[in-house]
Design a protein around this nucleic acid. Sequence first.
DNA 1: ACCATATTGAGTACGCATTCCCAATACGCT
DNA 2: AGCGTATTGGGAATGCGTACTCAATATGGT
Lengths: 131, 131
Amino acid sequence: MIVRQRHTRQRAAIMSALEAANHPCTPEELLEAAQVRVASIGMATVYRAIRDLSDEGRLSAVALPGAAPRYELAGRGHHHHFECAGCRKVFHVDGCPGDLARLAPAGFTLEGHEIVLYGKCPGCAASSKSA
Amino acid sequence: MIVRQRHTRQRAAIMSALEAANHPCTPEELLEAAQVRVASIGMATVYRAIRDLSDEGRLSAVALPGAAPRYELAGRGHHHHFECAGCRKVFHVDGCPGDLARLAPAGFTLEGHEIVLYGKCPGCAASSKSA
DNA sequence: ACCATATTGAGTACGCATTCCCAATACGCT
DNA sequence: AGCGTATTGGGAATGCGTACTCAATATGGT
């Protein structure tokens, strides 16, 4: 018989870190969050988990302009992201303006789109006021 | 007297390559295009020109998700971009849906946004049909 | 509990884009 | 034309994110 994949504390720690965070995380963020549960966990394990979980379709990558990719739980449906200019954290945005096809120049076939909002998250907006 | 900056064939070649291309270019693209005019030009010069011209405000960087930054002539006003899934070239998109503030979650301050369209440019749409 | 083997952790290696280094060269003011 | 100096070219060096190596360990079916 072929053993495909084992359930390890490390992978569980990474998945629950991602669930708890509720926002797309960098590998670095995942490492720190997972270390709370499994102190000895290393970067290589985080990257392997990201690769394997992505292959299984349980994780999806979020590419952002000029930033390292983040990872979020898959199955959230079409949505976009908000990057805070203060803490650089990335949050989910549930709406979509739709109807972007009219923006595409003539002759271009539109297959998809990405929208990224920039600004301050509630925490950073508050601290920049008090500063 | 302080000599600030000299006009060199290299910098002129890079600027005119950018004007001729009429789309945001990678440093690599700029190198190749500039080599048509100044055969001996090297990457270091391209990167220096990008830095200096950006500092002067004549060039602006275009960051795209999961792709190396492109550079375009500054002063084009608010616009977005279209990345071809075939040739990976990036094109200008002149419209903007506007009114993205309502997408931002409650408590978030919106300061800017980026929209990237994906699909096929006219050339790649044609070649994928014939293939 | 045993054992075959998938997984881990730490360091090392890698790929890529970008910058540095420095002697040779080109610019442009006089 | 002469000269001081900014610029060039190209190879080497850097920084960063990510993948590999391999001995030690943990997992889970029996």
